[in-house]
Amino acid sequence: MKYTAFIADDEVRSRELLQNLLEELCPELTVTGTAATVDEAVKSIHQLQPQILFLDIEMHPGTGFDILQKLSPSASAQVIFTTAYDQYAIRALRISAVDYLLKPIDVQELQSAVQKAIRQINNKQPQQQLQHLLQNLVKQQQDYTISLSTSEGLEFIPIASVLHLEANGAYTVFYLKENRKIMVSKNLKEYESILADHGFFRVHNSHLINLKEVKRYLKTDGGYVVMNDDTSISISPRKKEELLQLLSGRAL
Results as ranks from 00 to 15, higher is better:
V173Y: 07
I157R: 11
F81D: 10
L188M: 07
S147L: 09
I52W: 01
I52K: 09
P158A: 11
I159D: 02
Q141G: 07
S147Y: 06
E152P: 08
Y144L: 08
E11L: 11
V226S: 08
Q245G: 14
E23A: 11
V184M: 11
L18S: 03
S232K: 15
A36W: 09
A170S: 14
D99P: 12
R216S: 12
F174R: 01
I7W: 12
D66P: 07
Q129D: 05
D56H: 01
K212W: 08
P50G: 04
I233R: 04
L48G: 02
A5Y: 00
R250P: 07
V226C: 13
A41Y: 10
E11S: 11
S96P: 12
G199S: 10
Q131T: 08
H132E: 13
Q120K: 13
G223S: 01
E109Y: 08
L165E: 06
L148C: 13
P237S: 10
H198I: 07
L71W: 02
L22P: 03
L130Q: 06
E152M: 09
L22T: 05
H60D: 13
E192A: 06
I209R: 04
Q141D: 15
Y175A: 01
Q19I: 05
N210P: 11
M183Q: 15
K139V: 06
E40G: 14
E155Q: 15
P158Y: 02
Y100H: 11
F200L: 06
I146A: 08
L195D: 02
P237W: 03
P61K: 02
L247S: 06
V203M: 08
V214P: 01
N187Q: 07
L246D: 04
A92S: 12
D229G: 04
E166I: 03
R119E: 13
D143F: 09
K240R: 15
L243K: 00
R250K: 13
K215R: 15
G249H: 15
V225Y: 01
A92N: 10
Q127M: 02
V225G: 00
P61H: 07
N179M: 09
T145D: 08
L211Y: 01
R216N: 15
A35G: 12
R94D: 13
S147Q: 09
T37C: 00
P73W: 01
T220P: 03
I182R: 12
L244V: 03
A35P: 01
G33C: 02
A160N: 09
V79G: 10
K212T: 10
Y171T: 04
R216T: 13
A92L: 14
L218H: 12
K239W: 03
P237T: 04
R13L: 13
P27S: 06
A8N: 12
S147H: 09
D230G: 07
Q129S: 11
Y100F: 15
V31N: 04
R15L: 05
Q142C: 07
L22C: 14
I157D: 05
H164I: 03
R202A: 04
K43A: 13
E109S: 11
T82G: 00
E28R: 14
I194K: 15
Y217D: 02
A89R: 06
